[in-house]
Design a protein around this nucleic acid. Structure first.
Lengths: 108, 108
DNA sequence: CTACAATATAATCATATGCTTATACTATTA
DNA sequence: TAATAGTATAAGCATATGATTATATTGTAG
């Protein structure tokens, strides 16, 4: 797959508000699925499917610990994605755009 | 519209290979519609529709001269879009990815 | 082992998207 | 004014996408 096809495919992942919001939340720390469900207005399977897409493109890492699955950013080697996120709000700013509080750390 | 919604909507425009290719071609000079048609494998109305979307989001400028309509990048004030394009090939590199030559400058 | 909690997958559906062809508009030129 | 070239809009269509609900899977705890 050529450079532009691959870039377009990755940028398409950022072109969805839910996924972009997730990536912004991940800027400062890892999040488990249930926390994302608590903060975003979307069902648990909805979150899982977004995370699968992000993972399949290598944009997030998955870490299973106990019954929780934590996701973290993996964009060190994707400069144009990293650059976009640099201009986006981090965890706190994103939560405030969502009119949400930090979720209770139920997990662990 | 909040910051993330607007950013996602603009990034969505970059998440299509045809549009991303057009924006890369525009990095070094303006292009008219007929040149884009000559270089990309898509119909003239297809190009026009992509340009309308890009224009409606302020990502390109339109300049009508004679019977030709020229489009140019307008991303100075859109830092995260500008940053993405900085990592993408310019006109020559994009043409070579497409296995195309510079189109004959039929216009003007 | 059973019950429950967290997550993933499957199936489904409504809408969005990108393309095409046909047609309309606009500007140049004969 | 008529013909033509460049571009835009309209309509139609196949596919992609993002969501939901139902169900399966996995892990923990009693």
């Amino acid at each position: 797959m050529d450079q532009l096809t691959e870039a377009a495919d990755k940028l398409k992942l950022l072109g969805d508000k839910t996924r972009l919001t997730i990536l912004c939340l991940l800027k400062d720390r890892e999040w488990c699925v249930c926390e994302l469900v608590e903060v975003l207005s979307i069902s648990q399977p909805g979150i899982s499917q977004h995370m699968r897409k992000l993972k399949s493109h290598g944009i997030v890492n998955e870490s299973r610990r106990g019954q929780w699955v934590y996701y973290s950013l993996n964009v060190q080697d994707k400069p144009y994605i990293h650059a976009v996120l640099d201009y986006m709000p981090g965890t706190a700013g994103t939560l405030s755009l969502l009119n949400r509080q930090e979720p209770g750390r139920i997990c662990e």
